[in-house]
Simulated assay, not measured.
Amino acid sequence: MKQPHPLLATWHRHLALERRRSAHTVRAYVASAERLLAFLARHQGAVPSTKTLAALPATDLRAFLAHRRAEGLGNASTARELSAIRAFLKFAGGEEATVPPIRGPRVKKGVPRPVSPDDVIALGEDVAENAAEPWIAARNWAVLLLLYGAGLRISEALSLTGSDVPAHETIRITGKRGKTRIVPLLPQVREALAEYAALCPYGTGKAEPLFRGARGGPLDPAIIRKAVREARRRLQLPERTSPHALRHSFATHLLGRGADLRALQELLGHASLSSTQIYTHVDAAHLLDIYRNAHPRA
């Protein structure tokens, strides 16, 4: 059995401990590095050394990307792979690294589409009504309200613990890269959390996960995604209606009501304002939809 390249373990530690990347990003970036190392071992006929990686020829990197494209990688996935590989080569080569200046494929940036407030409520009610038990109904309703009413990522909502209830007017959220932010909670969200906490048969220990699965373990986000998918089908809502779409809708609806872009950036926990600016395009697209549907000359 082949031993993994020693650089993979140090790359993993660098991403997880020094860069404080999310578990998902760490897995993806390490997998990209592992694929590159395996390809180079075949392509060059030897296990690549740190010196080899520091001066990797552009032809070899292009050959790797062509190999990945032949495996069926699309433009967006290829661009992400190239970004991960660039970061790895800089890390592996240190100060001596000269990363080939290869441009990735052009990726058309998608614009997230909001879900209407009425559809959000209908979705939440349907998910709750079709739950197996009352406490699960209360749990699902509370999770979805945190996504739409507070703009949380599903991972952020499911990271809450018993110490977060009873909820106050604001809540401290730890998001990507360990960045914390203060998020206000609407009365409806606080009430939903309180109802769930009162019904949960497993209690709400201060250091324990707040949201529990049917058997008492931490709630798997796949359970919420499945419940939303099934409700979407029953209600005949668009395919874009997903848990993450509720966070997009939170942002879009706030922007449409005059929210400041910088304030929205803080609420969403975006490190860069450019990540938030996409919602200006969302709002424009929404207005265009209304225009096309309502204007007699459209």
Rank of each mutant, 00 (worst) to 15 (best):
D119Y: 00
D118R: 11
E266R: 13
A157Q: 09
A231M: 07
A138G: 12
A31N: 12
G93C: 10
S32E: 14
T204R: 14
P100V: 00
S275W: 00
L15Q: 01
L15C: 07
I136Y: 04
R62W: 00
V99M: 03
P243Q: 13
A138N: 09
V120P: 07
L235Y: 04
E129I: 00
L288Q: 14
I102S: 05
S275E: 08
P6C: 08
H295T: 08
R153P: 03
V99A: 00
G216V: 04
A54D: 04
R139V: 04
G217N: 12
L254Y: 05
P57Y: 07
A92R: 06
N140Q: 05
N75M: 00
L65M: 15
Q44W: 08
R86Q: 03
H253V: 13
E133I: 11
T52V: 08
A79T: 09
A41S: 15
S249M: 01
D60G: 06
G74R: 05
L8V: 04
R42V: 06
R69W: 01
A214H: 09
H43R: 15
P296A: 08
A16E: 14
D118F: 08
L255M: 03
N75A: 14
L145Y: 01
A298V: 11
A128P: 03
L123D: 12
E169P: 01
E95W: 01
P296M: 11
G205P: 00
G45R: 04
L152Q: 10
L219C: 03
G203R: 01
A263K: 06
A128T: 03
A150T: 10
A263V: 14
F64V: 13
G205K: 00
P221M: 03
P209D: 06
T241E: 10
P184L: 12
G74I: 02
T52P: 00
R106V: 09
Y291M: 02
I121K: 14
T52F: 02
K2M: 06
H168N: 11
F250E: 13
R153S: 10
I121M: 10
P57Q: 12
L254E: 10
P101I: 07
R181H: 01
L73G: 02
Y279S: 08
A132Y: 03
H281F: 01
T180M: 08
L89V: 13
P296D: 07
L123P: 12
K109E: 13
G205A: 09
R229D: 14
L186N: 09
R225Q: 15
E34K: 02
A137G: 15
R19K: 10
H281N: 06
Q188Y: 11
T50A: 11
G217C: 12
R80T: 09
H248D: 08
L89I: 09
R190H: 03
V111M: 04
V47Q: 12
Y196C: 09
T180R: 13
V183T: 05
R139I: 05
G269L: 02
A251I: 07
E96R: 15
H5L: 10
I278P: 04
P4T: 08
F88G: 00
Q3S: 12
P114N: 14
L246Q: 06
K90W: 10
G45L: 10
